[in-house]
Each structure stands twice: as structure tokens, then as C-alpha cells.
Design a protein around this nucleic acid. Sequence first.
DNA 1: AGAGAGCAAGTGATTTAGTCACTTTGTGAC
DNA 2: GTCACAAAGTGACTAAATCACTTGCTCTCT
Lengths: 222, 222
Amino acid sequence: MAPSLSDRLTEAILGIIRDADLGPGDAIPSARELAKRFEITTPTIREALRKLEATGAVEFRHGSGTYVGPTINNVVLANPHRPPITKESVLQLIGARLLLEPAVAAQAATASQSLEKLEAAVTNALTPPGGPAFALNFHVELAAATGNPVVEELIGSLLKVRVREQQQIRQLYDNRKRDYEEHRAIFEAVKSGDAVAAEQLTREHLDHIRTAIEAAAFPELP
Amino acid sequence: MAPSLSDRLTEAILGIIRDADLGPGDAIPSARELAKRFEITTPTIREALRKLEATGAVEFRHGSGTYVGPTINNVVLANPHRPPITKESVLQLIGARLLLEPAVAAQAATASQSLEKLEAAVTNALTPPGGPAFALNFHVELAAATGNPVVEELIGSLLKVRVREQQQIRQLYDNRKRDYEEHRAIFEAVKSGDAVAAEQLTREHLDHIRTAIEAAAFPELP
DNA sequence: AGAGAGCAAGTGATTTAGTCACTTTGTGAC
DNA sequence: GTCACAAAGTGACTAAATCACTTGCTCTCT
């Protein structure tokens, strides 16, 4: 009912970012500077900045400054304060993907998007360069191949949710070779523009993963 | 690289909420109380609470207290700090829905979920009770009928993004009668378990909306 | 000239102490 | 019984500091 409190500040800061046409990685004015500009004190401006930080709109770097975050242009995001994972929630997640991704694959097959990154993601998965979070995820790149950034965000958010327990799932379902082969098959179908095959292969692929998760016992449950 | 800063506080607060098994609407300890408990000062605890507020995990009510928010159990959410809407972004949004919702409708047709709310949403749309945000949205209820809460969240987030410009779109595409008829047709298909028809009808319905938006001139563009 | 150590300025992180504004609740007068 | 009002509890915000970290510069030594 109230107009707002320090929400106006977050809007104002976003306004500054957009007026200056700043993108992810660019620096924004310091907290002291902003406090002076809006004629408020630093704890107040920090509250507004924290709100923006929570959604990835800005990033703090201690001693250096505050910067525009990576997800400032997102329309949808993974809840950073999500509840702890359970077997049920993982199955719900894979269920959602099973509903969504076959259509994504079909769309990708008919879109005339560049497939370079997608192919890189296929081969990348076999030889993970030690990094825990591989920069190129096959399923995200598949979504990107639809040419619709919102779809890419959607899949990315869905995967980000379980980033913490990814290694756990990896242990349960470490059939990396089969993963690779299925990814490659999907890629080939997309490349040749065979939407029906891409859809079907994706459905089977996710179904395999779901079956593996269903069969596995979960380490920690309340 | 750093372990974290006041992120530990947000986690600790979430821990308190979960340990006490609090749900949306329940009150959490006051800022002063929390500050005392963690042996820190109130501005610091407020920063942590603001982060939680940004994602809807908690809610402030001036003079009353702090309460658990509605989206605390979400895995994905609409970006509250999203960029201003453009015609292109609306089309991307409808494109994502066009990819996703036909599969949702098909799934809903085969699921053995209660359809009461869905039917209510159909009839509700014809007679909006003056409220700008109708509690029962047909597309969200359709997603709910799949029985997968993550799918419901996904569609809900996608729709929430343009809540601000909903009335604008309404003006452009105010074919409420056709909307109602198409919704009812989808509902009937779902009810009779005809997945193929439900899928096709949903695709056509969204395609109509997209066509209408494409044809419309957008009021404000940079 | 180049490489390294060390200083200084700028910035985020947090404290301390207090004031103001709002909501709720209970009490007492009517 | 009902209404007005005071009190307690709470969020909202201020003010002025201090500590911790990063960065860039300069100065020195090689």
C-alpha cells in the first residue's frame, strides 16, 4: 500500500546504471558517492545495494568497488535462497526439464542459430578441465540454440538450482560416457535439422537421468 | 573465493526459519533480537534481511515486524529488478511460453490432478472482480494441473515479469471474449484427457496473442 | 630501464549510539 | 460494550567513526 521505502533507491541506482548504459562488469559509483548524491547515509544506501546484490544486479568487491552483476538483464533467475535439496525436489526439477527440454531441442533443430558453442559443449563434457562449474553446459547451450534468450535463462536457472549438489548427482550418475554419446546424438539431430529426432533423443536422455536418480538412495534426508 | 561476508547471516536466518518450521506469513524475530543473538549490530542484520527481502524470502511490515515471505520455497523467481519492457522482450517472453506451454497442456491432460481451480480460472477471466491482479490465472492454473510445482513456478514467474505492463497488453489485445472461448476449449480438452488437442489448442491460443502483439505498435520505445 | 618493495588513497565492512515513525495492544474512561 | 489514548515493541534512518582490503603509484635497488 505504501509507495515504498528504500525501494526507490534500488530503482534510482538501476536508473543510474541504465542511463550510463553500463553492462556486467562495469563499475558503479561508490557507496559513499551514492550516499552523498542521494543525501542519505551509507548504511541506507548499502541496504539498497544488498537488495540488488541478492538478485545479481550488482556485485561487491571488497576494497575495490561495486560493479554491475551478471544477471542484471535477466527476466527470471534461480532463487539464491532456495531451500535445501531433497530427492523429491530433484525429481520435480528433472520432471520440469523433461517437460520443457524436448520442445527446446525441437526448436533448436529448426532455428538457424550458430552451433559452435553447442558442439564445444558436447566435447567439453568428456574432458572437464578440472573446473567444477564448466562454462559450457550442453543443455544450456542447447537452449541458447533456440535463439530465444528467455528460454536460455529458464534452462540455466533450472540447472543452477542444483549446482551445489551437482557433484553429488555426478557420483550417483557418473555414466559420463553415455552422457557424451547421448549429447552427441542430440547434437547431430539438431545439426541436421531433424526436430522429431532431437525431441525424442532429448526425452530419452533426460528419462535415463531420471531413472538413475530415482534408483539412487539419497545421502542426507531429514 | 572468500568464504563469504554477511551471506552467512542470510543462511543463518534461513536456518532459523527452517528450524522453527515457519511458513509464509509467520513472524520472525525482530532485527534487534537477531542482532543480539548473532552479536552484531542492527545495520548489519538489516543488510542481510534486505537481501532476503529482495527474493521474497522475508517481508517487512513497518512498525509490526518481519515475516516470512511468499516465495521462500521457490526454486526459481521473476527478477524483481528486471529491465524495462520493450516490444522485443515481450515477444521473447511469448516465444518462450509458446515453446513451453503446449507441452504443459499435454501433461496436464494426462495428469490426474484436480481441475477445480482451473475451471474457476476459466470463468473468472470473464468477470474480473475489479482486481488488477486476478488471483487465479488460467495459464498458471494449467501449469499447476501438471502436478509439478516447479512447472507452476516457471509459468508463474514468466507471467509475473510483465505484470506491470499487463494492462498495456490488455489494451492492445482486449479480445476478452475470444480469450475466454479459447481457454474453455483448452480446459475441455484437458478435462477429457485429450493431450494432443490440448497441446494444439494451447499453441494456437498463444499464437493468436503473439500475432496481436506483433501487429500492435508499442507506446514507449527508446 | 626494469623489477620489486612499500606507502597512500579509495573503497567496502562494520560498529556504536541514538532518534523518529509506525503498528499493535491493552487499559481506562465514557 | 465501545471508543480514545497511552505505552511498548518494531522497523527506518541518521551520524560519525574505525577496520580491512585492493589498487596504483612511487621510490628504491638491481
